[in-house]
């Protein structure tokens, strides 16, 4: 016993140390806050995003039913998760570590904040602090505007970034931009991130054969990769930059896996035909029984 207590203490201390050192977030990112206030709307969006992106490993928050992996993913409603600041949570989701993937290109900043707003709903004592819109530190007092032009001839997207203030309008130069396309389960990074040139222009090449909707439209999003320097300004535009795709739903045509209404015609006919024939003959036999009865009744009457 005398030896056991120090041993246990050592293990506990070691455990605490291990968990303490496990995931450090740079100091300048810890204090980052959402630019919008969390409300029911954002929590709802966050829940949807959580179900699509996080639930498979982390389980249902508060139920402690996360996937038994090593290291354990853990329950986002737990104190261990909730003691993170908003900025720390944001950083961890963006960067990922080990088996936890990075969601940098999968979720937009606003989506990650919506996710955090959902997770915070499991924390009674949480009080949100909201930050003003991130403004550019490189172009103070200016609003950065992003324009986007589609050149269908050579499948390129030209983006221009301009910092507009009351007094002047200047090109945003040497700012790294990322072009993304919305897909069903996240965002697809298109081309490599590129820096704006001296005129504030940057050109991305759209990949050939990118599936769009029935008209070939895709939602294209341009962002600065360094939000700290250039702000969170972005541009979302629908461009006819994709291939028109007519993906018929798998449950639209008649098929074996479809509902009864959409069963293949041959199987409906075979089934109903078989049933009709079998029961038709059974009915015929029952009618013959009736004939036997009638004959018997008539002959008894005659005999009387």
């Amino acid at each position: 016993m005398r030896k056991l207590i120090p041993a246990l203490t050592a293990i506990l201390l070691l455990g605490t140390r291990l968990s303490a050192q496990d995931w450090t977030v740079p100091d300048d990112r810890k204090g980052r806050l959402s630019t919008f206030a969390f409300d029911d709307e954002t929590r709802k969006t966050g829940q949807k995003l959580y179900t699509a992106n996080c639930k498979s490993c982390h389980g249902i928050p508060g139920e402690d039913n996360w996937l038994r992996l090593v290291p354990p993913p853990g329950d986002p409603a737990s104190e261990k998760f909730q003691k993170n600041s908003d900025g720390e949570m944001f950083y961890k989701v963006v960067t990922g570590r080990g088996q936890m993937p990075s969601f940098r290109t999968v979720l937009s900043a606003n989506e990650i904040w919506a996710l955090i707003s959902y997770l915070r709903s499991y924390n009674q004592g949480y009080v949100q602090q909201v930050m003003q819109l991130i403004t550019s530190s490189a172009y103070p007092d200016a609003e950065i505007r992003i324009a986007l032009a589609w050149n269908s001839a050579d499948s390129t997207v030209d983006i221009s970034a301009t910092a507009v203030s009351e007094k002047s309008s200047v090109a945003v130069t040497d700012a790294e931009m990322q072009l993304m396309v919305q897909r069903r389960f996240g965002h697809l990074a298109v081309d490599e991130p590129r820096n704006t040139d001296s005129r504030g222009f940057v050109r991305f090449r759209m990949p050939a054969g990118l599936p769009g909707d029935t008209a070939g439209n895709v939602l294209v999003m341009a962002r600065f990769t360094d939000e700290e320097t250039f702000g969170s300004a972005g541009k979302d535009t629908i461009l006819r930059a994709g291939m028109p795709s007519f993906n018929e739903s798998l449950v639209a045509p008649r098929a074996m896996w479809n509902t009864a209404r959409k069963a293949p015609v041959w199987i409906i006919l075979t089934y109903l035909g078989g049933v009709l024939i079998a029961w038709g003959f059974i009915m015929l036999v029952l009618l013959k029984l009736r004939d036997i009865f009638i004959i018997g009744e008539n002959s008894t009457l005659n005999n009387k």
Partner: peptide
């Protein structure tokens, strides 16, 4: 016994059935 009286016609119908 559905009024069975061993009538020839009854036999005939029964056999058909």
């Amino acid at each position: 016994s559905v009024k069975w009286v061993d009538h020839e016609k009854q036999f005939e119908i029964l056999h058909k059935a």
